[in-house]
């Protein structure tokens, strides 16, 4: 099925097209959500919601970009919305992570078993970086996460964010300056 056929099928609310979309793009959507949220339950919930939204709004897809670009855009925006709407909730979640094994630690598949000190240190480093990324302005956060975690090239990020290539370069530069400003004093 070509992408054009898939989109036609989605607009026509065709069940086969709908299943193909989920099969082809669920890893993309889930991984973007996970990159932003760092929590598998939330990423899974949000992935479901995003596909439902895509199903309901397929007719709004203008076809001027790839389907994957559209999905990267929706997934990034919905992830940030989720974070914005759940700020209070995150507080309790973070509080509980002191007592319960952290989500990130549980999901790590390591070839060699880590002792608890190593595991703690890795979680701590991951938390420091995630906190620093969380403090970035949203556009810088999207650019940094898509580039560093999703491994998207700047050209594709420009399409996802609907900005020019120099704008992405500028966002990435400012993101790195801000991350240095946040992390350096903590690590001195």
């Amino acid at each position: 099925m070509t992408e054009a056929d898939l989109i036609k099928g989605l607009i026509a609310k065709d069940e086969g097209a709908w299943k193909t979309l989920v099969d082809q793009y669920q890893i993309l959507v889930y991984n973007v959500c996970y990159g932003f949220l760092q929590n598998s339950h939330d990423a899974q919930d949000l992935t479901q919601d995003i596909f439902i939204e895509v199903f309901n709004n397929a007719h709004k897809f203008r076809g001027d970009s790839k389907l994957s670009t559209w999905l990267y855009r929706i997934s990034s925006n919905r992830s940030l919305n989720f974070i914005r709407n759940n700020k209070k909730w995150r507080f309790w979640k973070e509080l509980s992570s002191f007592f319960v094994d952290d989500e990130r630690g549980e999901s790590q598949e390591s070839e060699e078993p880590m002792d608890s000190d190593e595991k703690y240190e890795l979680q701590e480093r991951s938390r420091l970086l995630y906190d620093a990324i969380s403090r970035l302005p949203e556009n810088q956060r999207i650019a940094f996460t898509l580039h560093k975690i999703e491994d998207l090239p700047y050209t594709e990020i420009a399409e996802v964010m609907n900005v020019t290539l120099p704008a992405v370069e500028s966002l990435m530069h400012r993101a790195k300056v801000n991350l240095r400003k946040t992390l350096t004093p903590v690590l001195k």
């Binding site: 099969d23 990130r104 975690i149």
Partner: peptide, 20 residues
């Protein structure tokens, strides 16, 4: 700084999926 950035990024990507 290098440890936080390198292993932090690795760890943040470790819960990603590669199978449906």
């Amino acid at each position: 700084f290098q440890q936080v950035v390198y292993s932090g990024l690795e760890s943040m990507g470790s819960g990603r999926r590669s199978v449906n």
